[in-house]
Amino acid sequence: MAGVGDLIGQSVWDSEGVWVGQVVDVRMRKNRRADFGMQQQFTVSGLVVSHRRAPVMLGRTRDPGNRTSWLFKLLSRTLYTGSSIVSWDAVASTGNGEITLRKPAKALQRV
Rank of each mutant, 00 (worst) to 15 (best):
G97I: 04
M28L: 15
V49E: 01
V4E: 11
L47G: 01
V26A: 06
V12N: 06
A54Y: 04
S50H: 02
V23E: 05
P55T: 04
F36Y: 15
A92M: 10
M38T: 08
G59I: 04
V44Q: 06
R32Y: 07
E98P: 07
Q22V: 10
G21P: 04
P55F: 00
A54I: 00
L71V: 12
R60F: 12
P104G: 12
R27Q: 12
R67N: 14
V26F: 09
V4L: 12
R60N: 12
V23N: 03
G97Y: 04
L71C: 05
T68S: 15
S93F: 07
T94S: 15
D14P: 09
R110H: 01
A2T: 05
A90T: 15
W70V: 08
M57N: 09
K30N: 04
T81W: 14
L101T: 07
G3I: 02
V56S: 11
G37I: 08
V86R: 05
N66C: 12
I99T: 14
V24C: 04
L75E: 03
Q41M: 06
L79A: 13
V26G: 02
L79M: 11
R60P: 00
W19I: 04
A2M: 01
K30P: 01
R27Y: 11
S83I: 04
K106Q: 09
T61V: 06
A92Y: 11
F42Y: 13
W13D: 08
I85N: 02
L108M: 15
R27E: 10
R62V: 06
L101P: 06
T61N: 11
W19A: 09
R29P: 04
P55A: 03
G17R: 02
W70A: 09
S83D: 10
T81R: 13
A92V: 01
